[in-house]
């Protein structure tokens, strides 16, 4: 995984080194690297002159940040209330089993997927909702998702 610091510098300059935009900077880091790499968290702390623990406090407080890399196609299973009553939580359990991973956030052995629960992606009218690599699938089911994952696997193998 790339941890080039050029991108980090770009992000810091974009927010004009203003530490009140720390959360925004971390979001950009997360979006680029798909997690918050430790060395970059330290660099960011030095650059902005804030204690490094504040960065980790924020990175662990907000759901949007992860400290370990995600799969190439992160899966998010909505477990908001609308999706919960339509079986979202069950879909999550079934995907975990399907990927052979023990917990949310863990990357599958082939490096392709990681799954996480999210609380409402805002398509509640289409519950249950799952997103795979950013694509939204509404009115879905365990079986449909498992077919989608199979398709992604095949496409990746063909590469």
């Amino acid at each position: 995984m790339l941890t080039d610091e050029a991108k980090l510098n770009e992000i810091i300059e974009h927010w004009k080194r203003d530490s009140s935009y720390l959360i925004e900077m971390l979001q950009d880091v997360q979006a680029h690297y798909r997690y918050i790499p430790h060395p970059l968290a330290r660099r960011l702390a030095e650059e902005l002159d804030v204690p490094v623990n504040r960065i980790f406090h924020i990175a662990t407080f907000y759901k949007g940040f992860t400290l370990e890399p995600r799969g190439k196609f992160p899966i998010a299973v909505c477990t908001g209330t609308a999706c919960h009553v339509k079986g979202g939580t069950r879909i999550l359990e079934n995907i975990l089993r399907d990927l052979g991973v023990e917990r949310e956030g863990q990357v599958s052995a082939d490096g392709l997927f990681s799954v996480e629960s999210v609380r409402c992606v805002g398509c509640c009218g289409l519950a249950p909702v799952v997103t795979v690599g950013g694509d939204v699938y509404g009115q879905t089911s365990s079986v449909k998702i498992s077919r989608i994952l199979e398709r992604v696997r095949k496409a990746e193998q063909a590469h």
Binding site: L22, I23, I58, F61, Y62, K63, F65
Partner: peptide, 21 residues
């Protein structure tokens, strides 16, 4: 950045100041 409590007024403002909400 994804925290329910940040909808609460004082947490929201803390978050806007770049702190945990």
């Amino acid at each position: 950045a994804g925290a329910f409590v940040c909808g609460e007024s004082t947490a929201l403002m803390a978050s806007m100041e770049g702190r945990p909400g």
